[in-house]
Design a protein around this nucleic acid. Structure first.
Lengths: 156, 156
DNA sequence: CGCAATTCAATCGCTTGCAATTCAATACCG
DNA sequence: CGGTATTGAATTGCAAGCGATTGAATTGCG
């Protein structure tokens, strides 16, 4: 569970797989992805597609860039994904009128309706974790702090 | 930072993207991946390839299955990845003698030597997080607990 | 105004991740 | 022993992610 004994006052970075935060993050994310794949199968959504829908259910009619900023993804990932959502009839993509470079992503009636069918997903996820609420709240906070630090660093 | 006000005694699952643990996990993992891509570029390793090397540096000469069990990945992911590592001259793949179904993955001298060149990666990662050690230790523990719960659930 | 710099989305090429399937080798059981 | 079940790795097909580039629209600056 804990690290090896370490000399006081020294930070000893781990050399083992299980000692690394990155692997805990990586593998927990894989496990979460597998859970969502299972839960979202009945909605015919993938996990990233679900995240896009979450954004659109919050704020409909946003640009690809805005979606990307929200999800930390770029157009190389979003464009094909949005085309698949459009193919599934959940989303419409239209060029902006004011600025024709932009593409506005809009929910269809079907896309809006899917929100109800997805309503119990978060509850199912919570149950699947088998964790206490407080623990998950702490975890979420820690992840957000980590993310902020990494993004800060990634932007040099 | 915190959720909306919630009625006492009720767990109210969030409906917003930022309210979801899964998104914190997903996006922190993306940010971590970007950091590793940057740090590993000079080693000509991808992030998953680095994780494989971490395992091999701990225990050389293991099967593809063992690797998969350790990393929560299957042969469909590992086989092409290992072929690329072999192409890079870091790894050798040989059929097991006792059981010819198995493939034993072994480090080459070059693969072993790479360990030294990768020695400072964990330190760099720690610095990049901008977090306190205690915070990261807590986070790692929380992620491992979450992972355990999810894996338990995923196995029905 | 006119032209260079920037921005936005799309595209290409590559590497994961995984469900489903295949094929060979081994284990199991009557 | 012989045949079936299981196991291990590989393969196929698809959906992310992302670096790098492209092309078109807009901005900005002299």
């Amino acid at each position: 569970m804990s690290n090896d004994t370490k000399p006081a006052g020294t930070v000893e970075p781990p050399r083992t797989l299980d000692g690394q935060l990155c692997f805990a993050l990586y593998s927990a994310n894989l496990a979460m992805g597998k859970l969502y794949r299972q839960l979202l199968a009945k909605l015919d959504l993938t996990y990233p597609q679900y995240l896009v829908m979450l954004v659109l259910w919050e704020r409909d009619g946003i640009t690809v860039s805005d979606l990307g900023e929200r999800l930390f993804l770029d157009s190389a990932t979003l464009t094909p994904l949005l085309k698949r959502l459009q193919g599934a009839g959940l989303v419409q993509r239209t060029r902006g009128t004011a600025d024709e470079r932009q593409v506005i992503v809009t929910l269809t009636d079907e896309g809006r309706a899917l929100r109800e069918k997805a309503a119990d997903v978060p509850v199912d996820v919570f149950c699947a974790t088998g964790c206490e609420v407080d623990q998950l709240v702490d975890l979420k906070g820690g992840l957000e702090t980590l993310r902020a630090g990494l993004i800060d660093y990634n932007r040099r």
